[in-house]
Each structure stands twice: as C-alpha cells, then as structure tokens.
Write a protein that binds this DNA or RNA. Structure first.
Lengths: 199, 199, 199, 199
DNA sequence: AATGAATGAGCATTCATTCAT
DNA sequence: TATGAATGAATGCTCATTCAT
C-alpha cells in the first residue's frame, strides 16, 4: 500500500503495529520504523500516541463507512441491505486483519480512555445497522416490536465476535459467504424450527 | 468482601483494579494496596502481572460457569435454557461491572498475549451456548441448518456488545429484562415480519 | 525595534526570549518566531544556540560599554565617575530587564560552558570600575590600600545583586536614584558612624 | 563525606553534580551514579529533578545559616559580626566550590522557575546581614541613613561576585583573609581618602 | 539567501520485579 | 510467610540541527 503522504503512511503503519502488538505494547519507534520515518516526524502529524490511535479509527472506519454506504445506496430491500452490511463487514475484517484487531481490541480500550467518545465514526458505523432496521420497520418488513437500538448492537456484536476468531491465529473452516448466510438466517428468521415456534 | 485467603484477596483486588484502570494502566502497587498486602507478597502467589490477569479470568468466569450450569441443570427446554443464559449473563454483567470490563477489554488483549489461550474457561463458557443449541437441534426445536459454532459466537457477541454500554458511563433506558426478551426474540424468531418471510 | 539586518533582528529576539525563559528553556523556534525568520535561517548567522547567547552578551554589553564610556569621558572626578557608572548600570537594568536577566542568569551559566571566556566584553565592562578606582588612587582621592581588582568585583556585585530583585517580580520601594545614592554612600564613605570609626 | 542515609547521600551527590554541570546539563543518572544508588531510588526521596535542586539549597544553606548564627552568637560588636559573616562566607565558598556554584548559578535560574521562592533559606541567610546592620544602627555604630534592605544586598552581592572567581577555574592571587579585610574596609570606611571625603 | 520539514539522539520518569530482613 | 526499599530497564516525547528545495 503506497501512501500518498506522510500522514497516511503513518496511519497505515500504526494500524499494522497496533494490530500486531496492541496499543500499549506498540512503541512509537515501531510505528516510525514501519512508516519509514523518524520518530520525531510522527509528532509533526500527531499530538501523541493516543492521538494516533484515534486517527486510525477515524480514518479506517471512515473509509469503511464510505464503502458500505455506497453499496447500500444501490439497494432498497432492507433484507438485502442487512446482508450487504454483514458481507462487507466480514469480508473487510477477514482481509484486513489489522483493522479488525484494532477495532476489536482498541475500541474497547479507548472507550475507557476517552470519556466522550460518542458521536464518533464508530457510532456512525453501527448506526447504519439501526437505520436499516428502522427502514425495514417502516416498510413492515421488520417487526415493529424490535428495538433498533438493541438490535443494532446485537447484530454488530455477532459479526464482531465471529470475526474475532480470524484475528487470532485459529484456522477456521467457515468462509465469509457461509458465515454471512448463517448470521442473516439467524437474524432474519431466528433459530427456531417453524413448528417449534408455534408450540 | 472478606477473602478466605491472600490468594483470593488478591484476585478480587485485581479484578477491581483491572476493571477500573485496565490491565496496562493498573499498577501492581494498586492491586497490593487494594488487597491490603505488600507489593512483594503478590509474587508469592503469582508469577507476574500477566499471571494475575489470567487467574482473574479463570476464577471469575469459573464461578460464573458454575452458577450458569446450576441454573441450566434445572431446566430442559432449550428455549428456556437460552433465556436463562442470556438473563444470567446480562444480570451479572450489569451488576458486576468489574467482571464485565475485564471480559470485554482484557479478554481481547490477552488473546494476543497468550497464543495458546484456548481450551480455557472462557471457551468453556461460550461453549455452553453451543451445547444448548445442539441439544435443541436434537430435539428438533432448533433448525439443523444452524451451525452451533457460528451461532454461539453470534449469541455471545450480541450479549457482550449490548452489555458493553453498561461498562461505559452511558445511562441506558433498557433494563436487563427487556434486553433479554429482545435478544431472545431476535435469536429465536428473527426480526422479520412472518408474512415478510414468506415473500 | 526596526532591525537593520537579520543578524541584529535575531540578537534582539534572542535577548528577549532568553530573558523570558532562560537559556535552556528557550527554543530556537521561539527565537525564530520572535525574529520573524525561519528556524533554519538562524543557522546562517550563528553556529549554534550557545553561539547566540555569546553574541547577545557581546552586542548588548558592548553597546552598554559604549554608552558608559561616553558618559565618563565628560567627567574627570573619580567620585562622580563611580556615580555615573552606578546610575547608568541601575537605570539600564531597571529599564531593560531582558538584558538584566541575561547578565545575571546566563552570564553565570556561560562561565561554566565556555572555559576560555575571559578577555571578553563582560570583563571589559567590569574593568571600567577598576580603572576609575585606579584613576582615583592616582589622584589621592581613593585610598591606595584598596585593591582595584577586589573593589571592582565588590562594586559590580553590589549593583548586580541589587538589580536582581527588579528582574524577579518583586515590587520594590527603592528608586534608581535612591539606590544609587545608597551604594555610592556605602562605597565612598562606608557604613560606619564617623566617631565609631575612631573607636 | 560519609552520608548517614540515602537522602543526604543524594543531596551531596546532587550538589556536586549541579556544581559541575549546572542544573540543566546535570542528568539524573549522573546524580544517581555519584550517590551510588539506582536512578529510581532518587524518586523515592524526591518528587522530581527540580525538587532536588530546591532541597540542595535548603539543606546546604540551612547548614551554613546554623554555623553563621552560632559564630555570631558569641559576638556583640556589629563591626566584628560583619567581619565574621564575610569571613565565614568566603571561607565556605572557597572550600566548598560545589555549594558556591550552586548558589551562584542555580539560585538565579531557580528564581525564574519558582515564582514564590521568597521566605526561603536564602532570604534568611541574606537577612542575617540586615539584622547585623540594624543592630549596629541601634548602637549608633552604623549610620542611620543606611538602608539595611539595600546594604544587605550590596554586601552579599559583593561577597558573591568576589567568590565567583573561585568557582571559575581562574587562579587568584587573593586569599580569603585579604579579601575579607578589603571588603570590610570598603563597607565600613568606604574607599575615599579621609581628606577627600571632606573636599 | 531563506525556508521549514525531517531527523534522531537524548533524558526524566515509571514500575514490574527482586531480595535482604 | 511477609515486607517494602531498592533496582534499572524501558520509552514517549522534545528540540537543536540539517538539508533539499
């Protein structure tokens, strides 16, 4: 990945290093070496180590939001939209393990460190899910008894936990496609046998 | 909390401190002070700081497993069993925020730090879910097309992400009961309107 | 203060910054900003940070020497000459606190840093005092038992220590005029009651 | 100098190192090495580097105050008292060059760093001079026209500037005794020829 | 001459761990 | 067992200086 400028070179390097070592074990010098710049250069673009972490989120997730929104714009069936979201998320997380790890590990760390870390890119990302659900409810496709605020977390949490296994070294038998279908089936139809639901 | 011995005194103190500050920001001296022992005493019971973290998992989650298994033993309807699991998990996580944080934050950190951290208490805990699902499939209550290995992660991930907001300071309108019902409804029946499912 | 050229612009800026922050806490970038030049430009005129400090001395004290010598040239009474020196010194130090601080603080630092910092402008300045004393001794106005080499230091030290409180924020009740008179009285006549001197 | 405990071992080491290199050029590791303790040990006794500097002042000057006051207690002639002060000061500064340098260099630096550095040991030390002068004025030995607040600074400044030459490497021809006599003569009787004073 | 982005050596401070008591 | 004083390796960040433009 050839970076256009120093700023994004550092962002990409940091994503890689944070993913590999975790925020606290990552050294500024690791990031600098990975980005092929001097340690001090990093401080021309970021205020401190933590600022790099925040920027990694904002930029990487920001890019993901762009892509997802683009894909969703071409679709109007809320069922398909949820599928698109799941597939895109799982695809990206399987391919870009660095980003996956940063989201999984550091997002939770950072929640403790920045108190007012709401209204951020991450929330924006997860809120795509709830807006799809609301849309489906307006069209009487999703049940109105479902709380979008809870369902969005459940859906994201499910995808996140599933993709977590890919970041650990465990080799898994499941493909992105199969996993997407399973999650979709669960969230759309539930896991009950139809007749069991009637019992 | 009157601890029977130094070992568990330190475990409880560490859980509290890790939850409050996170593993990397927690100081051995913080834990020692909280446990009312000398810094050096900790090293009579644990090899190093990381060893404490592992022990916290093992003990706290081990206790949770005990409780959950006990509750499940008295029930044989797989639908009820899933509800019991969800309710117990959410209840504990809402009440014991320390444990919730340690699981959410540190579990993911530790996955990176110990490569061979499988076959552990955490896996055992999550596998309770898959065994419930398998049981339900044997009874033709859960669809056989559902992959227990994927569904267990989806279910746990959903509960985990939902309980995450309780550990952050955000005041939430949702109760444990309501949340449990929502998650159950989603996982058992899906979010589709019945007629939409037929379309 | 409109500087004729970059060199003196930097000197003036450095005097200001050194006085405000001290040599070690002053940043090259502070000086550059104050002088409205680029950081790198400074190195076209000075070898290094310390070289700037030396130049500040040389130029600022050099100018002071000029002025003092001019004033003294119009006077031939060694008693008046000492008064002129004291008054000029105290006046300048009270007005130009930047210079005062640089002399008081940095002079002493620099003595440690440059071993061969003798035969410099500062020595030249203090030697004005000893030459006045010698002149007075030749005219039998000052006692020949007084060692000019010691007296010059005593006189300068007295003035320097007195003016030191002006550079600290302390508001003082003493005016330049009163202080000059006091120092003159002490150095010319001593502090003894005439009759006590006889006892 | 065998230090009774770590605290004073560090104080003595710091005095030595500060004198040799100056506060800003002194490294904590230099002090630690000189005191034969680990770097970290220093922080068990002092809050930070600057705190060490302050402590050096307080302790070293505090000890000097003790000694001077003891010597003065045995004397009641204000003329002799001033001589005792001068002699003690010059003797200590010539012998303990480390202390001399710390006073001369760092005292002035620190004045900028701590805003409220009044009511301190240094002030207490200089105020010994003004109290001697006041005593002399009460006994009609010192002229009442002399302002103790100005004279104390003049006297201390004179001694300080004279002793400064000993801290620089310059070999001087003046002995402590001769210097004391010269300063005393100047401050008690002035530098004027008696008949010149009448002119 | 002038710029200012880039460099990288350098240091105060922290804290997990040890060990003499 | 228990203590806590002592250790010293480790690192984020600064800033004087350089050099391509």
């Amino acid at each position: 990945m050839k970076a256009a400028n120093k700023h994004s070179k550092i962002i990409h390097a940091a994503t890689k290093v944070f993913a590999k070592k975790g925020f606290f074990n990552a050294r500024i010098s690791d990031i600098a070496k990975e980005a092929k710049v001097a340690d001090g250069t990093i401080y021309l673009y970021f205020n401190n180590k933590f600022d790099i972490l925040i920027s990694v989120f904002e930029e990487e997730i920001g890019a993901l939001i762009e892509q997802v929104k683009k894909l969703l714009a071409a679709e109007d069936d809320p069922r398909k939209m949820l599928e698109i979201f799941a597939q895109k998320h799982l695809t990206v997380m399987k391919k870009n393990k660095n980003l996956a790890e940063v989201i999984q590990i550091e997002l939770r760390q950072s929640a403790k460190l920045i108190k007012d870390y709401r209204n951020n890119k991450f929330s924006e990302y997860v809120n795509i899910i709830s807006s799809i659900i609301k849309l489906g409810q307006e069209q009487n496709i999703y049940r109105s008894s479902i709380r979008p605020g809870i369902a969005k977390r459940a859906f994201f949490g499910a995808l996140d936990e599933i993709s977590r296994i890919w970041t650990v070294g465990v080799t898994t038998e499941y493909t992105v496609e199969e996993t997407t279908q399973q999650v979709l089936e669960i969230f759309l139809c539930g896991i009950l046998e139809p007749e069991a639901a009637l019992r």
